[in-house]
Design a protein around this nucleic acid. Structure first.
Lengths: 203, 203
DNA sequence: TGTACATCAGTGAACGCGCGTTCACTGATGTAC
DNA sequence: TGTACATCAGTGAACGCGCGTTCACTGATGTAC
């Protein structure tokens, strides 16, 4: 019996293996449940069966752990969207249009599934990496590709392609936020996607 | 000299006068500066030259103080929008169109001026009053009026009026959030307003 | 194959702090007579 | 006009808590010879 006998499920080994990843995973789990405020480094460490100070081998402070959560979430959102889009196969105009729709739906579904992670991402909790122009939000790059695809298939005009990101992302993001925070009903989401298509001149 | 000599600017009277309003005002000031997290009831009370427990004569707990801030902000946003819209006078189609634009601009300007209040309003900090269908977000009612006005002047069709709120609010809200959180540049805002007009079929 | 040693991951106790909330209280106010 | 008293706004001390962070440390690991 170790000195940490109070731990409900002792780790077994002295070294953890991949504590950094475990800390991030636990932190995500806690944010998901309790919200971006109420995240406690001590609680994260405790859930990893590790002393609070152990975290400081991997993160200089709590904020950088939060940023790590944010980074992970942005990647995960992009992954989810990729997955949703890739399910719509086909090289047709119709398929391209469906992929736009699915990219919007998957954005909302991600947020609906884990509103607290969504709040962390966009609620001013983590400062985004402005390191490089190329170092873009990966979910944004997914959108760019979907829109390029629409142009390629002649679903939208060159002129509409111009500011297409600005027709899609804000509307999708805003509708998602407003629904999640209870300002508009979930049923309204498809209608918002309609307005995006209208803005892009898709009939 | 009172027993609260440590207070930098003693209140003078034992009774405050309108402590409830003062608490809300101080709380807003603190949120504005330090963000919706980091709001402390004790600090609010201290800034009002009052003991922490005094606040409990007006608010059952901290959360209800936060909700009071939220209520105030929603009203204030509506007031700001009213003001901006009323500056565009005239009973013409052109004026009606300009009022739509101004309602969008003033929404963003409000958020830009006080991003932390905006975050409090829409970041899941205060639960909104779902007491009644009629008890709507006042800023939303401003939008409804502006859109009705567009229909009256024949700027948009009856069909476009149908889901016009869903074409405007999510886009405006999303663009505002994304700019404030650093995901898209401020310069893009006018282009977003363009896409709303496009969605509504305004040329 | 066995040993000495450098490396470094994790410990645990302590720091100082500010928090929300409670409680029995007291000072000021205003009203009834 | 003056006094007794009910009302209630604000006090201040205390509660128990969990937090982020620091520090000198020790246990485990793996590598060089």
């Amino acid at each position: 019996m170790s000195t940490r006998a109070s731990a409900t499920a002792p780790r077994g080994t002295y070294h953890h293996g991949d504590l950094k990843a475990a800390l991030v995973a636990e932190a995500i789990k806690l944010v998901r449940i309790e919200g971006p405020n109420h995240l406690s480094l001590r609680e994260v460490a405790a859930n990893c069966k590790v002393s609070p100070s152990a975290a400081y081998h991997y993160f200089p402070d709590k904020d950088s752990l939060v940023s790590a959560i944010g980074d992970y979430c942005f990647q995960e959102l992009a992954r989810i969207q990729e997955e949703a889009i890739s399910k719509v196969v086909g090289n047709s105009a119709k398929a391209a249009k469906a992929r736009l729709r699915e990219s919007g739906r998957s954005y909302f579904q991600w947020a609906k599934k884990d509103p607290n992670l969504f709040r962390l991402m966009f609620g001013g909790f983590c400062s985004i990496n402005k390191t490089d122009e190329a170092d873009q939000d990966p979910a944004y790059l997914v959108l760019v590709r979907v829109l390029d695809d629409l142009l390629t298939h002649g679903v939208i005009t060159k002129a509409a392609r111009q500011n297409a990101e600005l027709a899609a992302w804000p509307a999708v993001h805003g509708a998602t936020t407003l629904i999640i925070e209870g300002h508009i009903p979930e049923e309204a989401y498809e209608a918002v996607l309609d307005t995006i298509e209208a803005a892009l001149g898709i009939k």
